[in-house]
Amino acid sequence: MTANPILLQRKYARVIECFAKQQGLSLDAALDFFYHSQVYQLIRDGVSDMHCMSDLYLAEELEQEYVEKMAKNK
């Protein structure tokens, strides 16, 4: 299923804002991480209707990916 592009943009903004708050990141840093994440690719490509998941769920998935990436870079 393909989501409306305008609705997806709003969804991205809410998820990025939630993720930034959870991680204590600036919105710019959260935005950069989001657009280079696997979570973004899954939502964008419509895999498993990820765009239907709650903003909090997606932010938590993004947080998990962020923690894994930070641990890998240490």
Rank of each mutant, 00 (worst) to 15 (best):
M1H: 11
A3W: 10
A3P: 04
A3V: 12
N4L: 08
N4I: 08
P5K: 03
I6L: 12
L7C: 02
L7R: 12
L8W: 01
L8D: 02
L8R: 04
L8V: 02
L8P: 00
Q9L: 05
R10V: 09
R10C: 04
R10A: 10
R10K: 09
R10H: 02
K11E: 01
K11W: 05
Y12P: 01
Y12C: 05
R14M: 10
R14N: 09
R14C: 06
R14A: 12
V15G: 04
V15T: 00
V15D: 03
V15W: 00
I16N: 04
I16D: 02
E17S: 13
E17W: 08
E17H: 12
C18Y: 12
C18E: 15
C18W: 09
F19M: 05
F19I: 01
F19V: 05
A20R: 02
A20E: 05
K21Q: 14
K21P: 02
K21A: 12
Q22M: 15
Q22D: 13
Q22K: 13
Q22E: 14
Q22P: 03
Q23M: 15
Q23T: 10
Q23V: 08
Q23P: 06
Q23E: 15
Q23N: 15
G24T: 02
L25F: 05
L25G: 01
S26I: 04
L27A: 12
L27T: 15
L27K: 15
D28I: 08
A29I: 00
A29K: 11
A30D: 03
A30T: 06
L31H: 15
D32E: 12
D32K: 11
D32C: 06
D32R: 11
D32S: 12
F33Q: 05
F34L: 06
Y35S: 06
S37Q: 08
Q38M: 11
Q38C: 04
V39D: 00
V39E: 06
V39G: 05
V39T: 10
Y40I: 04
Q41H: 11
Q41D: 13
Q41K: 15
L42W: 09
L42V: 05
L42F: 11
I43V: 12
I43F: 04
R44K: 13
R44Q: 12
R44M: 11
R44I: 07
R44S: 13
D45I: 01
G46D: 09
G46C: 08
V47M: 10
V47T: 14
S48C: 07
D49Q: 07
M50F: 13
M50R: 11
H51S: 13
H51Y: 15
C52F: 10
C52Q: 14
M53A: 14
M53V: 09
S54M: 11
S54V: 08
S54T: 15
D55L: 09
Y57D: 10
Y57F: 14
L58Q: 03
L58S: 01
A59C: 04
A59K: 07
A59N: 00
E60Q: 15
E61S: 14
E61Q: 15
E61C: 15
L62D: 02
E63M: 09
E63W: 05
E63K: 14
Q64D: 14
E65V: 08
E65G: 00
E65Q: 03
Y66H: 03
V67M: 02
E68D: 09
E68Y: 04
K69L: 04
M70P: 01
M70W: 03
M70A: 00
M70K: 07
A71V: 07
A71Q: 11
A71K: 08
K72W: 02
K72Y: 01
K72F: 01
N73I: 08
N73H: 09
N73Q: 14
N73C: 00
